[in-house]
Amino acid sequence: MQMRLFIPREQARVDDLNASLEAVLRNNGISREIQGNVRLIVEELASNAIQHGDVSGLEAQQHELCVDIGIRDRLLTLEFRESGAPFNPLEQPPPDDLDAGILERTTGGLGLHLVRQVAEQASYERIGDSNVLRLTLSIPSAGSAP
């Protein structure tokens, strides 16, 4: 199974994206736990791109977010693509002092930390005008869920 979903860079549309992804995952028999992990990754990456991404150098019609989702064997792959200034979410520092600085901080530090922890593997590539992040999650075989 492989499919691609696009949304405009608008926070209100992130929930639509997640609703679509959830339907796809459910139809493919993916557990609620993995559905939750995918929702978390997509919400954090999309919100971060929408709130902090620099799209000043782009034409309006390029202001899109794109998610490719693939399910093969016991592996779920997500490819998150956003056009904008170069930004590698994997190179952002972990939120080391959450307690002290949290209200001054944007949610970005916290959100990207969650993405890095939830995904089993993640890699970043700059392709043309886009930041491309590839993530994988393994799917526990049926019946082995706790």
Partner: peptide, 17 residues
Amino acid sequence: LDYISSAGLRSLLKARK
């Protein structure tokens, strides 16, 4: 609660603060 993201965590932290 079915789901929480960093935005939700931030609300909890705000209340705590």
